[in-house]
């Protein structure tokens, strides 16, 4: 596989473990703040791991500025080609066969464009002269830490690197607990798909604006394509909720909960503070959990 941690062993998570992904088509709807509040809330009674899969811009850590127990940190790698110039015959077959245009061969020169390489290894397989070796190249880091009983893993993509998907895979295969919460990247394409692919339930976080509604409908399309269980949370809820409610009613999608559009919450999230310590929000977090576990069973 693309990368490996020295101590990592592939295997199933704990019995009956569940994975819940927080995703949305649109950015800035409140995925991270909801995932962090939800995970921290559950961690008081349960064995919870929160994974930050938004590896291009990971922000879970702002909620845990004093991560009392920093843990290990690993490099996430992919394999890329390295050419042995003594063996290379400059035949150009590797360049022809590369579907990502990551190799160019001239008369007596060969160039590899790392930023385009996906690490598939086709070039090495095709090379008759045996001139292409696969070497490891770092795409980012996986960090682990904990806050009281909550365990947290985050991926951080190196600036200028494009291997978002590979790093997401690495963050997830790293460890498992009874409840695994994923904070997903925005969008509706490969990084988002990779994040929700193994989730038992996906929470689509939206906001009641025309943009929120449009991007929710795209995210729902992904859920239906993947045949995934999901529910909707209306964040920043207010007097325009009907646009989301009408859409969900029509499609028969569940609305799990609403979090009001409130300046105090915006301020708290801006500072990276939790809001679930308020009784009203604890009830909401509990409702969300009960709803999800009811749907998974």
């Amino acid at each position: 596989m693309n990368s490996a941690y020295p101590h990592w062993k592939k295997g199933p998570g704990p019995m009956n473990s569940i994975s819940i992904a927080f995703a949305s088509g649109k950015g800035g709807t409140g995925k991270t703040s909801l995932a962090a509040n939800f995970a921290k809330f559950l961690s008081h009674e349960k064995n919870v791991l929160l994974s930050d899969l938004d590896v291009e811009e990971p922000n879970v850590s702002i909620f845990f500025p004093e991560n009392e127990k920093p843990g290990s940190s690993y490099n996430s790698k992919i394999t890329i080609p390295e050419v042995d110039l003594n063996k290379c015959t400059y035949c150009g077959k590797c360049a022809q066969k590369c579907n990502f245009n990551a190799i160019a061969v001239y008369q007596d020169k060969i160039s590899i464009f790392q930023e385009l390489c996906k690490g598939c290894g086709r070039c090495s397989n095709i090379c008759e002269a045996g001139a292409i070796n696969l070497i490891e190249s770092e795409v980012g880091k996986v960090n682990e830490y904990s806050s009281e009983s909550l365990e947290i893993t985050e991926g951080i993509l190196n600036t200028g690197n494009i291997h978002t998907k590979s790093l997401i895979t690495d963050v997830k295969k790293y460890r498992h607990r009874d409840i695994n919460i994923y904070d997903c990247p925005p969008g509706t394409t490969c990084p988002m798909v990779e994040s929700v692919l193994d989730a038992d339930f996906t929470v689509l976080v939206t906001e009641p604006t025309p943009f929120g509604l449009h991007d929710l409908s795209l995210a729902v399309e992904v859920m239906e394509k993947l045949n995934k269980k999901f529910g909707v949370i209306i964040n920043k809820s207010g007097d325009n909720d009907h646009i989301i409610e009408d859409y969900c009613k029509k499609g028969n999608y569940d609305i799990l909960e609403k979090i009001p559009f409130d300046r105090t919450i915006a301020e708290k999230c801006g500072r990276g503070e939790f809001y679930y310590d308020d009784e009203n929000y604890r009830i909401k977090m509990n409702n969300i959990y009960n709803h999800i576990t009811g749907k998974i069973k």
Partner: peptide
């Protein structure tokens, strides 16, 4: 959804 489209499988 996991496939990157490299065609290595076709070669193999």
């Amino acid at each position: 959804f996991s496939c990157e489209g490299c065609s290595l499988c076709e070669d193999i």
